[in-house]
Every structure is written in C-alpha cells, then in structure tokens.
C-alpha cells in the first residue's frame, strides 16, 4: 500500500530527473570530433574545465556573484521580514507581504531590461544623483557586476523575506520576554535568541537564493553586459553556439556538484517545510 502511494512520485523522479541526469553524466564523458559527438569514457571535458583559465574563471565569477548576492539579500531581507512580522499590525501583514513580492508578478526578462534603463548613464539613478549634485559625472553601473548583483538582489530579497517571515511569525514572544527577565539587552536577545531561532528560515531562503542565482544566465547577460562570463553563460555558449553538448554536460555536472556541496553545507539548518 505504502509503495503504491509513493510509486507515482518515484516514477516521476526517475523519469524526469534520475534518467536525464544519468544521460547527462554519460554525455559529459563523450567528446566532439568535428561536429559529431563521439561517446565513450573520456574525462577530457572535466580536465579542460579545471585547467582552462577561461572556464575556471567563469566558475569563480559565478561563485563570487552568488555569495555576494546571497549575503546582501539576507542582510536586507531579515530586517524587512522582521518589520512585517513584528511592527506591522496583523491585519496589514498580508498586504505588506503582497507589496513585498509584487515585483515577482513582472516577467523576469522584462524586469532585467527595466533595471538596465534605471541603472543606465541616462537612467533614473544617475539623473537623480546628478540633479542632487552628489556626482559630477554619471556613474558606470549598467553592464557591470554591480548591476548584475543589484538585479539579483532585487529578486531574491523578495524570496528571502517570505522564508524568514514564515520563520519569524512562528516564534513565541515568550522567548524575548524570558531573555529580558534574565537580564539580556535588546542586542543580546537578538544575537543569542532570535537570530539563532530564525536560522532555519534564513538558511532555507539563502540556499534557494544560492541555487537560483548560480544557475541563472539571463541577469548577467542583460545587466552585466557580458562584462564577464558566468558558468551558466558558458553552458549556454556551448549549447547554442558550439553545439558542444558533451562539454555543456560536463559544465552542468560541475554546476550541480557545487549546488550539492552548498546543500550539504547548509543541510544542518535547512527546513524546506518552512517555505
């Protein structure tokens, strides 16, 4: 009976994850001869990924951007979630959350191009700073890593706000009261009581941010102006331009390995049921 209930999910996972993944791993050990894929067991693609500086740099770029985006998003999302959970009256919290996630309703690509206009030399940001006399020359923001990070952070703050908020509203106010009774100040209460209790929500959101950010190629391409390559962009180049499916598969396996490592690093605190 139990297996019967689980079978559809297992079959689904086997058909649409395990088998495709196995095929991808097998393909990653193939190589190209001209424009033909030659199957076999050739570790050349992996050797190239870790010895070719262009490929290694793409991996490092992806990791750097993802870590910065994740950290900045957590730092911005935690206070926002706390304000919604503790400061906004209960009857308005639903509306506050709705407003917080409103940008989700816009197409991802459209939102990226919109940011390009906002961050451009003649965009809103530069015009505002120039008219306030804060800068003499327009800032170079678009087509840089900063623009990529801003675009990502805008998106992922929404996601993290939801996961952290879901964690915060489950906390009993008695924790803070007990800490106060024992003589803890507001900072100590936050540092030693509230923050550790919200770690599951923070880590869950951070992990999702990490996974989605490191696998994205649209934002670096549009906002980053191809100023540097990330790993997903490199994969897309192999698929769309070179038709080098074995190398694209090997790069994808490396990407999945990075995500798996991130999962193990955060698994102690991961609470996906809080999402």
């Amino acid at each position: 009976m139990g297996w019967g209930l689980v079978a559809p999910a297992l079959l689904w996972t086997a058909a649409f994850f395990v088998l495709p993944f196995a095929a991808m791993v097998a393909l990653s050990f193939a190589h190209m001869e001209g424009r033909e894929v030659v199957r076999g067991f050739d570790p050349g693609n992996y050797i190239r990924i870790f010895t070719d500086w262009t490929m290694l740099k793409a991996l490092l770029n992806s990791l750097e951007i993802t870590v910065v985006v994740t950290v900045v998003s957590v730092v911005l999302a935690w206070p926002l979630a706390a304000i919604i959970a503790f400061r906004v009256p209960a009857r308005w919290q639903r509306l506050a959350l709705l407003l917080a996630v409103l940008p989700f309703w816009t197409s991802y690509v459209v939102r990226s191009y919109a940011w390009l206009l906002v961050l451009g030399q003649n965009g809103v940001v530069n015009k505002a700073l120039l008219s306030l006399g804060l800068i003499a020359e327009p800032l170079e923001i678009a087509a840089t890593r900063v623009a990529t990070v801003i675009g990502f952070v805008h998106f992922f703050v929404m996601l993290l706000t939801l996961t952290i908020y879901a964690n915060l509203i489950q906390l009993s106010p008695n924790y803070a009261r007990a800490a106060a009774d024992l003589g803890a100040g507001r900072w100590q209460t936050f540092r030693h009581v509230i923050l550790p209790l919200t770690l599951p929500g923070v880590v869950t959101g951070a992990f999702l941010t990490f996974v989605l950010c490191i696998g994205d190629y649209i934002t670096p391409q549009i906002l980053g102006g191809n100023a540097e390559l990330t790993l997903p962009q490199l994969i897309m180049l192999q698929l769309g331009r070179s038709g080098n499916f074995p190398l694209a598969s090997a790069l994808s396996v490396v990407l999945m390995a990075v995500v798996t490592l991130a999962y193990f690093a955060s698994s102690r605190w991961l609470r996906l049921d809080r999402v």
Binding site: Y113, E140, A143, G225, N226
Partner: peptide
C-alpha cells in the same frame, strides 16, 4: 563597455 545581444 559591453558585449551584448541584439536587444541589449
């Protein structure tokens, strides 16, 4: 400054 697709 940038290397971009058609739309960009």
């Amino acid at each position: 400054k940038q290397v971009s697709d058609v739309v960009s």
